[in-house]
Amino acid sequence: MRVVENLNLALHGLLADDPRAYLLGEDVTDPYGGAFKATRGLSTRFPGRVLSTPISEGAITGVAGGLALAGDTAVVEIMFGDFVALAFDQLCNFASKSVSMYGRPLPLRLIVRAPMGGGRGYGPTHSQSLHKHFIGLPGLSLYEMSPFHDNTLVLRSMLSRGEPGILFEDKVLYTRRMHEADPIFRVRLDGELAVVDLDDAPECVVIAPGGVAHRAMAAMRTLLMEQELSCRLLVPSRLYPLDVDALLPYLGDAVVVAEESTAGGTWGSEVAHQLHQRLWGRLRRPVAVAHSRDGVIPAALHLEREVLLNEETIGTAVLEVLRG
């Protein structure tokens, strides 16, 4: 099963199990079924609860906030995650604030899905990974779709927190197969953490969101074949707030955090800071961060490649943290 089919199935399940669940977004109804086909079949099966909207990301997110305020469950699809910038006020100043600013918990069942990432030549405003702009908002959790996490469980986990959440979905994952991994690695889930490794004594651990998993595994394969280095990959489903305790048993003295965001104020630097506080005496070097370069993401294939994080970026970071 492809990742987008798994996501589609999860959305079907959510709407089937919860008669008060709505899904809103641009072009999400059949026969189109969403720009990336994640919502295919939903409007036919759940008429009146799956709504194609005008091009109004701010209002769609606000409407979803209103539904959640009234006790419903609301899922918003932002067509390209870059457009979530247009919904920033509703997320920062309404939905996440409302959970606590009224002096008592006000649970909101609200998920905003944001397809992110480059690699498809869509250019500077359709290829970004904007996670960094949403880190540290009290009352807002950040998740990322992954090939190792069943989206039914991911959506359930998000809704169980009683606060709005963003599900970042790396676009290149949609057409990948679920659980696809190089057969040299063993893959297992420990709670909401996916662990991918060769053995119990990796020399370096790479922490990455789901969209970067395949690039990390490719880097790990190359490091094994060319350097005889054994690495472990950790893929958390929830990126923020991060459950650092869940990571600790799998970490050694060398850690790299890899993500596709461009440089500056990244998720990785937040993770690195948290790990430094917990592991400073144990680490052989500071946690290394691997990310895309500091610049816009060009449309032309060869230019886009120069900017985006790739397996070489991750491999270089691993070697740096191991050898300086």
């Binding site: 209002a59 997110t61 606000g62 906030g65 209103g66 100043n93 009224y102």
Partner: peptide
């Protein structure tokens, strides 16, 4: 919340101009 962020069941105020209208539309949809 203070002066401009009040909530009681069926009543809510916010301090950002215009923000409440999409939210009110969502409640109206409900």
């Amino acid at each position: 919340g203070g002066s401009q962020h009040l909530y009681r069941e069926t009543y809510l105020s916010t301090g950002i101009q215009g923000q409440s209208l999409p939210v009110a539309a969502g409640v109206a949809l409900h």
